[in-house]
């Protein structure tokens, strides 16, 4: 009898190995998305006209089904991790840019005026005022991007077993071991919830100035 955590040898990884692989494939693209979206969002804030085209392009990209995206990339990047990770980075970008733009725009104009009046240059003002105040909005975007990214990695199974935990779904059918499919779904969901909780924790640590819920009436 094979157990819940006995992973067929064709996957070349232990359960923990798959978890690590899954997190890497899911979160590296989110990180890349964040790094790219910060300057893009700042451009959108600086030049209002820039937001509409960016919003249009990202909306269209978001509409491309992940599977189709993967398949189209095979020609260029082959059946590799990159083929999975590039679309995920694009999806993260799509979620993060509007979140950051809204967050930075939500900084009260009088706060900005006060910062300028105290002699903060544009860079300092961005790093010390706008960005910190936008943290809750950015983290909210990161939560959506990270959780959906973790969920989407599984589909990579369809392009030459690049789906990390998703590959268990294939084996579940090949070896008639439905518990592998349960393992895949439960582990992926748990990872999503865990990462989400971690991001909430990060927000709490980064924003000690936010009123705690329940502290005031």
């Amino acid at each position: 009898m094979t157990g819940f955590f006995d992973i067929p040898s064709d996957l070349q990884h232990s359960w923990l190995g798959l978890v690590g692989l899954h997190l890497r494939e899911a979160l590296l693209p989110v990180l890349a998305g964040l790094v790219l979206s910060l300057p893009v969002a700042q451009l959108c804030v600086r030049f209002r006209w820039f937001y509409a085209p960016v919003f249009g392009v990202t909306t269209v990209l978001y509409a491309v089904p992940s599977l189709a995206f993967f398949v189209l990339l095979i020609d260029y990047t082959g059946m590799t991790e990159s083929t999975v990770m590039i679309p995920l980075a694009v999806y993260s970008l799509v979620v993060l840019v509007p979140a950051i733009v809204d967050g930075v725009r939500s900084v009260p104009p009088e706060t900005l005026a006060a910062a300028t009046a105290m002699g903060l240059g544009p860079v300092r003002r961005y790093l010390q005022v706008q960005l910190p105040i936008a943290v809750p909005a950015i983290i909210a975007g990161l939560r959506v991007a990270a959780v959906s990214s973790i969920s989407l990695v599984s589909i990579g199974m369809l392009i030459g077993n690049q789906g990390a935990l998703g590959n268990l779904l294939n084996d579940a059918q090949i070896y008639h071991r439905p518990e592998l499919a349960v393992n895949s779904v439960v582990t992926t969901a748990a990872l999503g919830i865990l990462v989400d909780a971690l991001l909430v924790l990060v927000r709490t640590l980064l924003t000690p100035w936010m009123p705690r819920k329940g502290a005031s009436r």
Binding site: R143, V144, V147, S148, I150, S151, L152, S154, I155, M157, L165, G166, L169, A172, Q173, P178, A181, V182, S184, V185, T188, A189, A190, L191, G192, I193, D196
Partner: peptide
């Protein structure tokens, strides 16, 4: 909502199909 979001759509599909 977080729990529902965390459910991998593709995995859930395969699992439901298996069951």
């Amino acid at each position: 909502a977080t729990a529902a979001r965390a459910l991998p759509t593709f995995g859930l599909l395969v699992l439901m199909f298996t069951w």
